[in-house]
């Protein structure tokens, strides 16, 4: 199984599209950090102008912690797109190029092959989120230095710089889990089609569609929203609350884990019945 996963990883590494995600993150984070370096004060003052009317704000607002927090919001739409580029191609890409027949001739069960592909996709997902964390924090540290984190969520929360490390660690873990859900979804769709474009477009469409429903129709779907997987893409923000709502985070973890299991189960079921002869 490990060998199979390593083979799948080797395939991912060899594909040029794998590096599109890393390049996109490098350019996006770089551009965003530079923009904030030159125009950040003005941008932030728009967000906090009401606070500035009432208070004298002492201290540096823009720092690597704030930049990392802002850029973590890219987990809602941008990072899922980059993940789909690779994971959506895992089965459908091989089906379209004809290599799927070759793989299935090997002495491995279809479940093992599917799981190996899923695991390698998850490793790619983890590496992408890790790269995002590294880029935002390290580049931000050199450009802005460290400092207290100001979170403009449910009012204003100020977190001391020595109290943010563990929060970011868990926030990135939570974000990674959400991205694994995305990878599982695209893998599942990938098992249904023989064209690599389908899973990529399909996954992105589902995410964008659910995000629109989640934001615009929020009052209408209030009771359903906690069980929609896209609503958990921002649950990492809970780690930056003054009093962390552990129950909601536990529920989020379970819901996302449930989605990963369901997507993989459907994907494996379908992959086992996939016609590779036609």
């Amino acid at each position: 199984m490990i060998q199979l996963t390593l083979i799948e990883l080797f395939k991912i590494i060899k594909r040029p599209r794998t590096y599109i995600g890393f390049l996109a993150i490098f350019l996006t984070v770089g551009a965003m950090q530079l923009a904030m370096f030159y125009e950040g004060e003005e941008l932030i003052s728009i967000a906090i102008q009401n606070l500035e009317n009432d208070f004298r704000l002492e201290g540096k607002i823009i720092n690597t912690n704030l930049m990392t927090y802002i850029l973590l919001n890219s987990l809602i739409i941008h990072i899922p797109i980059l993940i789909c580029l690779v994971t959506g191609d895992a089965i459908a890409g091989e089906a379209s190029s004809g290599t799927l027949r070759l793989i299935l001739q090997r002495p491995y069960t279809r479940n093992q092959i599917y799981l190996a592909k899923a695991l390698s996709g998850y490793l790619y997902t983890i590496s992408l989120v890790f790269f995002l964390a590294l880029m935002t924090y390290v580049l931000g540290y050199f450009l802005f230095g460290s400092g207290d984190l100001i979170v403009l969520r449910r009012g204003v929360t100020v977190i001391s710089s020595n109290d943010v490390g563990w929060r970011f660690f868990f926030a990135f873990c939570s974000g990674t889990l959400s991205m694994i859900v995305v990878a599982s979804l695209s893998m599942m769709i990938s098992s249904f089609v023989n064209n690599a474009i389908g899973p990529i477009v399909g996954t992105i469409s589902i995410i964008i569609g659910l995000n629109i429903i989640f934001t615009l129709g929020a009052p209408l779907f209030k009771d359903v929203i906690p069980y929609i997987f896209t609503s958990h893409f921002i649950k990492w923000q809970y780690f930056f609350d003054f009093e962390i709502e552990t129950e909601k985070l536990k529920l989020s973890f379970l819901v996302q884990l449930g989605y990963i299991i369901v997507f993989n189960a459907i994907g494996m079921y379908n992959f086992n019945r996939k016609d590779i002869l036609s």
Binding site: I76, R154, I234
Partner: peptide
């Protein structure tokens, strides 16, 4: 600005 999309509901 805040990324707190849950506040819509």
């Amino acid at each position: 600005l805040t990324g707190d999309l849950e506040s819509y509901s």
